[in-house]
Design a protein around this nucleic acid. Structure first.
Lengths: 357, 357
DNA sequence: CTGAAAGCGCTTACAG
DNA sequence: CTGAAAGCGCTTACAG
């Protein structure tokens, strides 16, 4: 690089422009109150020398400033998927504490759009400098985004992306490809005439998530492409009703003994896994998503064949970090940040459990 | 946490102890020249309030200090494995530039122990504040480590670990398990009575690396455990002699038509892949290591079935970072840092290529 | 609109 | 052994 310009300070710029450091500072930050003439002069020099602010000095000098962030994500009980995103947020929060950034986590019910709307109604009643949003309810998120735009408050998305908005950045995966990969993992271990069972969870509050829908599409696309000629069966299960689930599964497996593979497009793979384990059906290959405790346990026992993961901790962590970098250092990250789609087998699981970021 | 103590400064400590900030600073950094009485008084208060230094202020104040790091790794031509580690080092170097840390990369020939010894002989002729070492030549690395210990210069290992030394940290993988995983990936797609070909590269200068040996052991262990009853064949190839390689491979495949799987325990998987591709032998499953360009190309074409990767960029990056954190902030990382063992298929490859850290 | 000065929390000579 | 003072590069009132 231009080594000769690598240590230029504001005082140097000020001298070169024949103004004071205050004026240079005002130009750098567009604080106004500078004559057009001086602004131009300073701007020209800034560009000429490729001025790079000293970030340590900047944050030290501004260290009395307070920032307040909000993170709006689904609530969870211990061991559920959304806990991982929350952990990433906490990690970033604790790292940024010394910069006087505080972060408030607001939780909504992922099966109830209204709980999300209730939160965003009161969101701006106090001072907010940035918002991280889990984008489960598309329409509501768009409404929130537009309001944040009006108030010039930056925001980032995690989980799934939404086009046409002004989010600072998105951190998440390509769900469609995550579905393709599930199919690949299953079909590598099945003959193309085996039957496959696709399970889904039914909820009163909400239909399938975008994630689930996209994964399912990718999954089916792969099967079609690769000449799958078995039958696809579907079953609807309930999140908290094992008796019901076992009954339904008994029914469908008895009626279709050719089912040798199963998949479920969210983190509740353990429901199917527990059934297969209880019934001693080791021969059925099972693929699911997310490294939550109940899944990893069954993976390491060999009941689940493979899990697909998408670095939820990192989504939360980098989401918060990108807001902080924007606020503190005016540094913007990429607008779309796709996490790797990790393939977990029993054999490489342990190296992921301590390496979540 | 102790919120009440969260913003205690050196001046506060000084007042509480009835001394000057200079004395507090001397105690914090063990700079000596403090009476035992004052040292104790200050130390007690430091502990009582859980003093946390302000890192920004510290680095700003010390920003005139210069640090010089060394990175000793194998030389490479473009697209070879060691380029990735080097990229990670460069990334960290550019981030740390503003802290006045410079890093000099020294390269040795990975097939010639003497070139490593030549480097370490002259290593300490100038001022060095930390060293990153690629641990290919165990005995020489131990000798170097002991000399660094004598000079109280911190050092970190990458690639493979060595016990009994005082390295600040190690960044790398568990090669044995990486071998297990290769076997799992292959056997998931083969019948247990298929034959398997293990290829190795022969060099004049050096026998098999630790990495390669460990991976091979893990691989064979998995086969034994899972009741593999095909035959294992071995072939020795040359790194730059396609004519020779094709001849040897033609020979062995013709003699053993039951070979349906192949593996090679280093990054030269493309040699086998190019052969299989040229001969149109799509049915042979091939598993190898490392996301170098020639491998990823064949993976995306479907010639290579799976690649196993171990985040070399991150090894270099975090290795340098841990030296810097030690020097600048007296923060030490974990002593052993095992990278995830990533499983790459054609379908998830692209999400790793832009996510190397 | 402009500049001089104080301050952020730490480290570094320096005088005693 | 100890302390007062200057300085790191930036931001923030404040006076004009």
């Amino acid at each position: 690089m231009d080594k000769e310009f690598s240590n230029i300070r504001i005082v140097d710029i000020a001298k070169m422009a024949g103004v004071s450091v205050g004026t240079v500072d005002r130009v750098i930050h567009n604080r106004g109150r500078v004559s057009e003439e001086n602004r131009k002069k300073v701007q020209a020099i800034l560009e000429m020398v490729h001025y790079q602010p000293n970030l340590m000095a900047r944050s030290l000098a501004a260290s009395k400033k307070q920032y307040h962030l909000l993170a709006v994500t689904p609530s969870f009980v211990q061991g559920e998927y959304w806990e991982a995103i929350s952990e990433g947020i906490d990690k970033a929060a604790s790292e940024m504490e010394s910069y006087n950034i505080t972060i408030t986590k607001l939780f909504f019910d992922q099966y109830n759009n209204k709980t999300f709307d209730d939160i965003i109604r009161n969101l701006l009643h106090e001072k907010v400098d940035g918002v991280l949003i889990a984008t489960l309810f598309t329409d509501s998120v768009i409404r929130l985004s537009q309001e944040l735009d009006r108030n010039e408050i930056p925001y980032v998305y995690v989980d799934s992306n939404i086009g046409g908005q002004h989010q600072l950045a998105y951190f998440g995966t390509e769900s469609y490809d995550a579905g393709v990969i599930a199919a690949r993992l299953l079909m590598d271990r099945l003959s193309s005439s085996s039957d496959i069972l696709m399970a889904r969870i039914i909820h009163s509050g909400k239909n399938d998530s975008n994630q689930g829908k996209n994964r399912r599409e990718g999954f089916c696309h792969y099967l079609t492409q690769t000449g799958f000629n078995g039958n696809l069966h579907e079953v609807e299960l309930k999140i908290n009703d094992s008796v019901y689930n076992f009954m339904k599964l008994d029914e469908i497996f008895e009626a279709n003994p050719n089912i040798n593979g199963a998949v479920i497009f969210n983190s509740t793979c353990y429901i199917l896994g527990n059934y297969l384990k209880a019934r001693g059906m080791q021969s059925v290959k099972l693929v699911g998503y997310d490294l939550i405790g109940r899944n990893t346990q069954l993976l390491s026992e060999g009941v689940i064949t493979a899990l697909i993961a998408q670095r939820p901790e990192r989504q939360g962590y980098e989401g918060v970090k990108s807001l902080c970098n924007h606020l503190l250092f005016k540094q913007n990250s990429e607008k779309v940040n796709l996490m790797p789609i990790d393939i977990l087998l029993k054999e490489n699981l342990k190296y992921y459990l301590n390496n979540k970021l």
